[in-house]
Design a protein around this nucleic acid. Structure first.
Lengths: 184, 184
DNA sequence: GCCCTCATGTAATATGTTACATGATTTG
DNA sequence: CAAATCATGTAACATATTACATGAGGGC
C-alpha cells in the first residue's frame, strides 16, 4: 500500500466526521485536535487535491457561474481502506517534542536566577491556561447529550492533554521551589 | 538584535559546553538533549557556517595538507551576547506536540477495540523504555562526583522528561482499563 | 583486512508556515 | 454599510530529514 504523509492521513480521518470542506477541516483541527495536531491552509488545500488525484475522495463542487466554488469532499471506498490500514500500523516512534523552555533552561547557568525564575513562571502560566482550555472543551463535549460515536475517543485524547499538562505544572512548582531555595 | 532560528541558538548554547566541533555537537544533542531537542548533520554544518559568517564564533581549522579538516568553534563576545539575549526573551508559545498515537485514537471508532488496545499498549511500552533511559542518564550525571555548573539545569530538564513520561504511562493504564471494560 | 568511530559536508527531497490575493455572505 | 465570517487557493520562504560522498585512525 502506497504510503502518504501524516497530514494526508489526518485529513482522511477528519473527512469521516461531518467536515466536508477545506474550511471545515481547518476549523475542526483548531477546535478539537489543537492539543496534539495542527495544519495550515497551505497544507490542507494542496493535500485535498492530492487526495482526489489519488482516488481517495471525490469532490463535488457547487460552482455555478455566479457563486464561488465550494468544494465538498467525500471519501471513496479506497480512501476508507487507506485510512483503516494506517490506523492499524503501529506508530514508528514517539516524537521528540521540541521544547524551547527546556532548551533555555539547559543553558541556565548563563543567566541570573531571577530571570530563569521568570521564564519558568511564564511557562507555568501558559500551562495553566492550556489546562483550563482542555477542561472547557471537555465540558462542552460531555454536556452535549447526544453522544456521537466519536465522543469516547475524543475524551481520551483530552484526558491525555490534561494529565500531561498537569504533570508539567507540577514540574514548574518543584523547579521554582528549588530555584528559590538557592536564592539566598 | 537580529533574530536567528532555534537551531542557531541551540548550537550557540552547546558551544558554551565543552563541545567544539560539529561532530561533538551532534553527540551532545543525541546524548543529553534528546528528550526535548534534536538536530541532524544537515542542519548543524550549514548553521555553523552561518554562525561564523555572522561573527558569533571563530573557527580554528586543524587542516594540514595531509590530515582531514577538523574544525573547532569558539564563541565570540558577540556570540555570547546573542545567546544571552535569546535566553532572556520569553518563549512565544508552548509548541503543539504532534502526537501520532492520539491522532489515530481520535479516529478510533473506525477500528476494532482489540486493535486500539494494541496501539495503546505499544505506546505504553515505548514510554516505559523512555522513562528507563531518563533514569539511566540521571544516574550517570549524579554519580559523576565533580558537578559542573551546568549539572543542576540538566537535571531539571531530565526531571521534566520523567514527570511527563510518567503521566503518559498513567494515562495509558487508565485508557486501557476503559477500553477493556467495554470489551464484554 | 574489516568494521567501528571520528569527522565534514552537500544535494535532493519533504514538510510546513506566512503572507498574499480574492470575493461572497451574514450579522450588527 | 461596515465588519466578521465563510471560503479557496498560491507563492515565497523557512525548516528539516535522508541519502550520499569522502576519508582518517584504531581495535580485533
Amino acid at each position: 500500500m502506497k504510503p502518504y504523509n501524516h497530514t494526508t492521513y489526518a485529513i482522511l480521518g477528519i473527512l469521516t466526521t461531518d467536515c466536508r470542506s477545506g474550511y471545515a477541516i481547518k476549523q475542526m483541527i483548531d477546535q478539537s485536535l489543537n492539543h496534539f495536531w495542527k495544519i495550515s491552509y497551505g497544507q490542507i488545500y494542496p493535500t485535498l487535491k492530492l487526495i482526489v488525484d489519488e482516488g481517495l475522495a471525490n469532490v463535488r463542487s457547487t460552482a455555478d457561474d455566479s457563486r464561488p466554488a465550494k468544494n465538498e469532499y467525500e471519501l471513496t471506498a479506497k480512501g476508507h481502506e487507506v485510512l483503516k490500514n494506517w490506523l492499524e500500523e503501529p506508530i514508528e516512534q514517539i516524537p521528540v517534542e521540541r521544547n524551547e523552555l527546556l532548551l533555555k533552561l539547559f543553558f541556565g547557568r548563563h543567566q541570573s536566577n531571577e530571570k530563569t525564575l521568570f521564564q519558568v513562571e511564564e511557562y507555568k502560566r501558559k500551562l495553566e491556561t492550556r489546562y483550563a482550555t482542555y477542561t472547557a472543551i471537555e465540558e462542552g463535549i460531555t454536556k452535549h447529550k447526544e453522544k456521537g460515536a466519536d465522543t469516547k475517543y475524543w475524551l481520551f485524547t483530552l484526558d491525555y492533554g490534561k494529565r500531561v499538562t498537569e504533570a508539567g505544572i507540577e514540574w514548574c512548582n518543584s523547579t521554582l521551589e528549588q530555584l528559590m531555595d538557592e536564592e539566598e
